[in-house]
Design a protein around this nucleic acid. Structure first.
Lengths: 329, 329
DNA sequence: TTGAAAGCGATACCAT
DNA sequence: ATGGTATCGCTTTCAA
């Protein structure tokens, strides 16, 4: 930039004004500056700029996901990126893999990089790091989880009611022996979904409750186990998309996909192409992302009011597998 | 940091040394500095740091994807992030949506943010921006595409041979009237796959070649059209995952999924759970990402040699739909 | 081993 | 409207 000033024979301040499109520069000089910039192959340095800028904004927000590569996360991610791009904001992102240490590290890295704000799918076990970030004045929004911090903006899905509503349908269809397959109960989300199930089937035998499943394969094995019980379930509820697939695979292997009902949390492509189609409790990750971005941006815009909590709805999609009635008797 | 220096009663330089773990600081002082840092709630400013640092590295690389939310991109993304994280490097990312203008903008933004390197799934129509970035000395790796730039490190999938091999299988199974469904031929990838198909079925009627499909829905409609032809295809090849799903949906709606063969490019979850299972030409996006990261890192490590071109293999996964033989006669 | 001071590239204040 | 200059937070000579 100094070079440009010399080359164009103007002051450093004028160059800065032109580059930033500030008003009050004569068209003549502005033109000269732009030409010099082109000739010298000038590239603006956004990092140096934000260092000196009055508000110290970097126009960057950071996003901590569970796993960037899974469909839920990547759709959430995309929605946030798109919302941010509209404001000229860039998104830094990383995956915690549900590991608090990793979450802590990411939050630390992102704040060190001067992110203007933070959106986190929190493990719930690294709240100290979130607290620290907020201590530096970095606005924070927690997504898809509820953490034990006072007054933090939060967006969650109506996990419990969604799951309960689906369970109620199974109950209405006559099912009384229903198995639940879920992921490790470390996350708030997982606990909520299980709670929703237990709201409807509180007396489920412990053999029919299989949590701690962290892959489709684990779910498949757990389902085989359940099918081998003396009193196997007449219906299954899954708390997560990969688990739904594992359960379905086990049912299909046993030739029972038309006899045992199945409802999964989280929609997935092709659920309708299977026979029978897989009924699901659907959610809208993109909406979740847009909402999180919205909350964060109001903070960036100066909102200082009380924390807000936003709940995004779920809805049931009937495709057949959830509509299989319990066998008579 | 100045505060720390004062608080600990040491020089600014010493604080910097401690923060950066530089050698040659007495343990006594180091301890004092660390304590002061803790007391004052110090947070390192990575941006200011890189501004003054001799190598001017930001430990950030940027990634331009087609669409961050699709499974191919997100797996690629994750692989690159993981490789980068091992070196303490952060990844900035964005989606071009196959739009050259957007690609240009992203590349510009990322270089302005002082990314140390660039990995791009190039549209092939914004090569000027890539060239410009390289002009600033930012190493560049192009992934999954080939661009018309001299000496640029490239990693691509063996699209053409993979598609040709699958087509050859259909030919061997007696198919002579095979339809091809592909996306807009703007991308190198799309053209390669079509070429592979035409290598085996060069005389395919134009009515059986349907490119320009950019969604599962479009593919579904195009398939319906093809099925309504006086001489409908006995087999279908799809150049892309969402298209495969659209084609299959149309076949299934027409009750023809067991009569008309289908092979898709790109594996997807549940392909094995459908009946019949969907045969695919599989690729390994994670490997592609690791390879791209590897090439970029050698450049960051000072490699100045000639450009390298890496080709990642594909393989065929038989699941049934591709093994349906052509009807006799 | 330690500290003083220069300066990375840019912005913002204050004169002009 | 324009330019000089202090400064953002940090790293890096260079002397002590």
């Amino acid at each position: 930039m100094r070079d440009i000033a010399e080359h164009a024979g103007v002051g450093l301040a004028t160059v800065s004004r032109v580059v930033n499109g500030a008003p009050g520069v004569s068209p003549k000089l502005a033109q000269k500056v732009r030409e010099a910039a082109r000739e010298l192959g000038y590239r603006h340095d956004a990092t140096a700029s934000s260092l000196r800028r009055a508000d110290r904004r970097t126009n960057t927000v950071a996003l901590v996901l569970e796993d960037l590569a899974n469909p839920f996360s990547s759709v959430l991610h995309r929605a946030i990126i798109d919302a941010a791009a509209k404001r000229g904001i860039l998104v830094l992102s990383g995956s915690s893999d549900e590991d608090p240490a990793r979450e802590r590290e990411l939050v630390k890295t992102f704040t060190a990089r001067q992110a203007d704000g933070l959106i986190v799918v929190a493990t719930g076990r690294a709240d100290d790091a979130l607290l620290a970030a907020r201590g530096f004045g970095t606005p924070l929004v927690v997504v898809d989880r509820i953490v034990k911090l006072d007054s933090v903006d939060t967006v969650v899905v109506d996990d419990r009611h969604g799951t309960a509503a689906a369970a109620a349908r199974l109950h209405a269809a006559g099912h009384r022996r229903v198995a639940y397959f879920g992921d490790p109960a470390t996350s708030w989300t997982a606990r909520e979904r299980l709670s929703g199930f237990l709201d409807v089937f509180p007396e489920t035998a412990t053999t029919l409750i299989r949590c701690g499943l962290n892959s489709a394969e684990a779910a498949e094995l757990a389902t085989r186990d359940a099918l081998a019980l003396p009193e196997p379930p007449t219906a299954c509820v899954s708390g997560r998309q990969p688990i739904t697939i594992g359960v379905r695979r086990a049912l299909q292997d046993a030739g029972l996909e038309n006899r045992i009902a199945l409802v999964g949390f989280g929609d997935f492509p092709l659920a309708d192409l299977l026979t029978p189609g897989v009924s699901v409790i659907a959610q809208d990750p993109a909406l979740l992302g847009r909402e999180a971005a919205r909350l964060l941006f109001t903070r960036l815009d100066g909102y200082e009011g009380p924390a807000r909590q936003s709940v995004v709805p779920t809805w049931y999609v009937a495709r057949g597998s959830g509509e299989i009635a319990a066998p008579a008797g």
